[in-house]
């Protein structure tokens, strides 16, 4: 899964995990660098999502046969 398709919470959790592994200590330099680069990319993506975030509201429905459906719910911003 590419970074762009993931949610903020997933990215943030991976960022925390990546930094935790960096803290873990004696990794080979190349591996430390890879983790550091990853954490930088993750932090950028997190901040991008924070900048772009827009509340998504969907209305749930249950049809007569019991099936589930949803549709965008709009008009509350006005």
């Amino acid at each position: 899964m590419s970074v762009e398709e993931r949610t903020f919470e997933e990215l943030f959790a991976e960022l925390e995990e990546t930094v935790r592994r960096l803290e873990g200590g004696e990794l080979p330099l190349g591996e430390s660098l890879a983790l550091f680069e990853r954490s930088t990319a993750l932090a950028e993506q997190c901040n991008t999502l924070l900048d772009r975030a827009e509340l998504r509201v969907r209305q749930l429905m249950q049809s007569a046969d019991g099936g589930l459906a949803d549709q965008p719910f709009e008009g509350w911003q006005g």
Binding site: F12, L15, E16, T18, V19, L22, E23, S32, L35, F36, S39, T40, A43, C46, N47, L50
Partner: peptide, 11 residues
């Protein structure tokens, strides 16, 4: 988020 990025840079 930024605190984590800074921690990574320091490490």
């Amino acid at each position: 988020v930024n605190a984590l990025a800074e921690a990574a840079a320091e490490l």
